[in-house]
Design a protein around this nucleic acid. Sequence first.
DNA 1: CGTCCAGGTCTAC
DNA 2: GGTAGACCTGGACGC
Length: 285
Amino acid sequence: MVSHGFHDLAPAQIDERHRSLTLTLRVPRGKPRRVTIRPGRRGHAAVDVAGPAPSAAARASIATDVARVLHLDQDLSGFYAIAAEDAALSWAAAGAGRMLRSPTVWEDVVKTLCTTNCSWALTVTMVNALVTNLGDPAVGQRDPLTNAFPTPEIMATQNERFYRAVVRSGYRAPRFIELATMQATGAIDLEALGTSSRDEAPDEEVERQLLALPGIGPYGAAHIMMTLGRNSKLILDSWSRPKYRRASGARRQPTDAQIIRRFRRYGPEAGLAFWLSVTKDWVAQ
DNA sequence: CGTCCAGGTCTAC
DNA sequence: GGTAGACCTGGACGC
């Protein structure tokens, strides 16, 4: 079972009916490839690559990206041990909780920025515009929504007017430029956050780095951290708060402090426990 | 038409 | 430390 965050956004497409996920992956020396991930033989995922057969190097690159997207290396045993003793979450101990994510940390950061202080419809508008106008087309695809997600390099070259007029990002425009420039020049290394372990860098340190990014606050940092497999922070926002109230059956909206207290027992996995509590209805039964 | 607000963040007190 | 105000956009709603 896989729970997804905001990843039904271009260029990714989730097909609930076929339980498949299609996305566009960059490969070394060649155009991006459109790739579909679906359930394979027991305990395995099957990966279909559109177009001509990929080279060995391309296959290796795709396999690495798919493993990252599915978070295959994540060890959730610590979470399951606690969830099994929690009546409200014991269902998750059967294997839920792997957080679907993007091929790059960069993409998850930009998409998170696109979810702040706006409707989901506007988030979709912004991401579609970025992918359509700045993404690299995959082989044999004409739909711009199947482009690979734009690189920080290309996003750094756009001006504020583009982000306002075309992307419809409003006041977020300078943040896109600043973020892209920082990543493109090496002033920050977002991908390194995706490979560092909790032993090397504690969650608090990663959170500090994320909060330093333009346009990223407590909500955004928590969301990005979940995609990094760092689950200590709760994703508290105008969607998850009322969703939690309904899911928990509370009559009145609990305060953030009350919610945090309820998940304290999960320690470093508190954010995951909270997220599964509010997305139980997303998980295929 | 205007006001409100949606999967917030930042600055200025 | 905590909190009001500003901030783009576009859809929902009231008048």
